[in-house]
Amino acid sequence: MELYHLYQNNYLVVLMFLLLGILLPAVALTAGKFLRPSKPNKEKQTTYESGIEPFHQSWVQYNVRYYIFALLFVIFDVETVFLYPWAVAYEKLGIFALIEMTIFIVMLLIGLIYAWKKKVLKWM
């Protein structure tokens, strides 16, 4: 029961921190509204582009490279999701888990080397 309370309280604290994290910007920006001047004009509200008239939107199709890096990130981040519980429980699992995990990591390493050889990791 006590551990259950600990569990509840921990996430109550997390919730309070989240609330504070949202409240501070909300309160500071609302309070600032009464303090700061507000004299908008057309020039102020244009998009900054080093002094020249901005042309086109900047919401354009973007270099695919970023997307490939995001894919790689997902693969390796999922790998860590598996590695964390393995690391915590390692003491109980012993040498067999080590061999299994080595196989798992080597497989992902092959993937990394493949990406490397395909020049995915090369920028530009």
Binding site: R36, P37, Q45, T47, Q57
Partner: peptide
């Protein structure tokens, strides 16, 4: 900073 005007671009 608190006293600075807060501009949001039209296009944003």
């Amino acid at each position: 900073l608190l006293l600075k005007e807060d501009t949001i671009p039209k296009a944003a």
